[in-house]
Amino acid sequence: MSENLAPSTAAGTAAAGTAAPRPVPAPARARREPMFPDGPAPDPAGSHHERRIRSFQPRRSRVTPGQAEALRRLWPTWGLDVDGLRRLDLGELFGDPALPVVLEIGFGMGEATAEMAAADPGTGILACDVHTPGQGNLLGLAEQRGLTNVRVANGDAIILLREMLAPDALAGIRVFFPDPWPKKRHHKRRLIQPEFLALAATRLAPGAVLHCATDWEPYAEQMLEVLSASPDFENTQPDGGYAPRPDFRPLTRFEGQGLDKGHVVHDLMFRRRG
């Protein structure tokens, strides 16, 4: 009976001069439904691996229309989720078995990554981050500049290293401006720790370089101390100190802002013993 009454009730309300009921809005997207069904997954490793202290802080900023379009079109070809369920064939991933591949952990919005890839087309860059806008931005930059040597990985770099990369697979690892976790109680979250170095050494080819950079002085000091104590690495600097910024590492906008504020940027370049 209610179905028969509903139309006449609405018509009577309108006839009486009262505004008709507003349309019911479409239901909101389900909480776990991915924003990009064919793009980066919200939690690619899911429950496949142990929960541990994370060295990164997921950021949920707005994805622009351009970044969203790049994710929709380019992710199926140039993107991959770090699910920890398969071993990557880097030669197949980049379409060239002879291409040396560098892993970049954390790339922000990807401007520096794109610049390094353009300057060195003979090196593949596997860029890993959890920031969706940055992933979309880097994919868009790679397409705009015609770069074929960039692949974007979504997820935890530790799982990528441990579960998905073969021993000696990498020609280098870059960790530029990682989260410094400045509060003392958060220092355990810093990425550059002995456990990370032991893992990274197994995935780097002998002689390959782990290159870190930070503008946080206490973190730079910790990096130098931990790297110098590692049996798997040796400092490329004869004096055992920091390295000058190499020409291939671009001066980013973020870094320039820090320099304007008086921050000191330290580069550390350590070679895997072999």
Rank of each mutant, 00 (worst) to 15 (best):
Y219Q: 11
D43L: 07
F270R: 05
R249Y: 07
R162L: 01
F270M: 08
H211I: 02
I192A: 02
L268E: 01
D179Y: 07
M116S: 12
M223V: 12
H266T: 02
A208G: 03
V226P: 03
T252Y: 11
G140W: 02
S55G: 15
L138Q: 08
G39D: 06
A243I: 07
G274F: 04
L85H: 11
M164Q: 15
R29M: 13
G91K: 09
G258K: 10
V264I: 12
Q67R: 13
A10V: 14
S230Q: 06
L103K: 08
N137D: 09
A119F: 08
A28E: 12
P21E: 04
G274T: 05
V102P: 02
A229Q: 12
L138G: 10
P238H: 07
G274H: 10
I53F: 02
A166E: 15
R73N: 07
V24F: 12
S230W: 00
Q193M: 00
A68K: 00
R87P: 00
L199G: 00
S61F: 00
A157W: 01
L224E: 13
P65M: 00
P231M: 06
P97H: 10
F177C: 04
H131K: 05
P21A: 15
P25K: 07
T148S: 14
V130C: 08
G136H: 04
E115H: 11
Q57N: 14
K188V: 00
P231G: 15
Q67C: 05
